[in-house]
Design a protein around this nucleic acid. Structure first.
Length: 156
DNA sequence: GCCAACGTTGGC
DNA sequence: GCCAACGTTGGC
């Protein structure tokens, strides 16, 4: 087994479709619907069970980091890709040759207050954060340990 | 609702 | 392999 060094991630979701309150209620969920190759690779290959991820709300007011989730399973084929009735159905993915993957993620905590995107932009040490790069739209992305620590200091 | 930026598709 | 057209993401 590879050295188990904890890594950090950020998961984006629109709260109108699935937000931190849903995760708190469900305790855990299958993180499905990722349909971008780079995000897919991170989800499938980059993560290790036990890693932690910020939960980010996009397309809401304010946008920002709202809590923490834990990566609670190994990667498995994303079942929504096989479901013709699902909006994420993809005929190019099949159970014998899956193209898309998902992970179980567990609720860890919800912050008392959102850490808004605008604050992240104004915080020293986060200049290189993937989330803050111009045009960045990755829904699954890495966070360095330093960035994680800097952000945790902003949490109220 | 607008629009900039990105990823994918398909014609050539 | 290029690139225009299109659809999507996501901040504002």
């Amino acid at each position: 087994m590879a050295a188990k060094i904890k890594q950090y991630w950020l998961l984006k979701s629109e709260p109108s479709s699935y937000g931190i309150d849903n995760l708190q209620r469900d305790k855990q969920t299958d993180w499905t619907g990722v349909r971008n190759f780079q995000a897919r690779n991170t989800l499938r290959d980059g993560m290790q069970k036990g890693d932690l991820a910020f939960f980010y709300h996009s397309s809401t007011d304010p946008t920002g980091i709202v809590g923490i989730a834990e990566i609670a399973s190994d990667a498995h084929p994303d079942p929504t890709a096989f479901d013709e009735k699902d909006s994420h159905f993809d005929p190019k993915s099949s159970p014998s040759k899956p193209m898309w993957f998902s992970r179980t993620v567990k609720f860890v905590k919800k912050f008392k207050e959102v850490v808004p995107l605008a604050d992240l932009r104004n915080t020293k040490g986060l200049e290189k954060m993937v989330l803050l790069q111009k045009g960045s739209r990755l829904s699954v992305q890495p966070v360095t340990e330093k960035e994680w620590e800097v952000i945790m200091k902003l949490v109220k």
